[in-house]
């Protein structure tokens, strides 16, 4: 039986893992390569590394980080942040990533999705979408606003419509972050996740708001997510992926165990 994936996310800034609440109040949580290995050891089904550094020097540090992390990772490894061209993607793949995640650059130039997919296969392209409900829209959920720049800038795109286009262009997965929930540990946005998951035929990874085991169970059942991503709850030892999965299994969610 295909299991629900638990994905550990590392937000990296200048070569260090950081964690903020709704993209502010950033605090240091350690070395990305070490943390990636620890999460894999502790049962994460996949590792996502998102680089939030924008500088040229930072990019070089990122490739080094990816190389160091990939060396000991034998689970799927996705890297995102600052990938603006197929060439950028190629460098990240050469450093050892299995997938890249594209976000703002794909909104500026949607052909980027096609280009990476053509060269590396659809399975290697994750389109990350940051969305915020729009209370003024006819359907605040399906028409949630798509944001860039860490949630500071509105793009004019609507979440379901953009997810559709990403799929049509050859995205292999959607990584959907609810900006309303991100960092709150108050639960995933299940309505938003379900709206996108039902609209596309590719896997949807839910992100933003994980705090308890029940939140994961809810986003798989009600949110129809294929995978769920969390960062802070793992970093500070609140829960390992393994203990989370053991509790999910007891709640009837199919997960990879033992792991």
């Amino acid at each position: 039986m295909l299991t629900k994936r638990i994905i550990a996310c590392l937000d990296v800034h200048d070569g260090r893992v950081v964690k903020g609440v709704q993209f502010v109040d950033i605090i240091d949580a350690g070395d990305p390569a070490e943390l990636a290995a620890r999460h894999a050891r502790e049962g994460a089904d996949e590792i996502v590394l998102l680089d939030i550094t924008a500088t040229h020097e930072g990019r070089k540090t990122l490739l080094d980080t990816v190389r160091r992390a990939a060396k000991v990772l034998f689970v799927p490894f996705c890297v995102g942040g600052g990938i603006r061209s197929a060439r950028d993607a190629e460098q990240v793949f050469d450093a050892g990533a299995d997938k890249v995640s594209v976000n703002s650059a794909a909104l500026v130039d949607p052909m980027l999705i096609d280009a990476i997919g053509r060269s590396f296969g659809a399975q290697a392209v994750v389109v990350a979408i940051d969305a915020r409900r729009d209370p003024t829209a006819a359907d605040p959920v399906r028409d949630a606003q798509v944001l860039v720049q860490g949630g500071r800038k509105v793009t004019g795109r609507r979440v379901v419509e953009w997810a559709h286009e990403a799929e049509a262009r050859g995205a292999g997965e959607i990584l959907l972050t609810s900006m309303d929930s991100d960092g709150t540990r108050a639960g995933f946005d299940c309505e938003l996740t379900a709206a996108v998951s039902e609209a596309v035929n590719i896997p949807v990874i839910a992100s933003g708001g994980a705090g308890t085991v029940a939140h994961f169970a809810e986003v798989f059942a009600r949110g129809k997510a294929d995978a769920a991503l969390a960062a802070s709850i793992f970093h500070f030892g609140v829960s390992s992926a393994r203990s989370l999965k053991q509790e999910l299994a007891q709640a009837g969610v199919p997960v990879r165990l033992p792991c």
Partner: peptide, 11 residues
């Protein structure tokens, strides 16, 4: 039936 592609850990 289900989503295609089949992505993830299966037994």
């Amino acid at each position: 039936h289900e989503k295609v592609p089949h992505v993830g850990w299966n037994s």
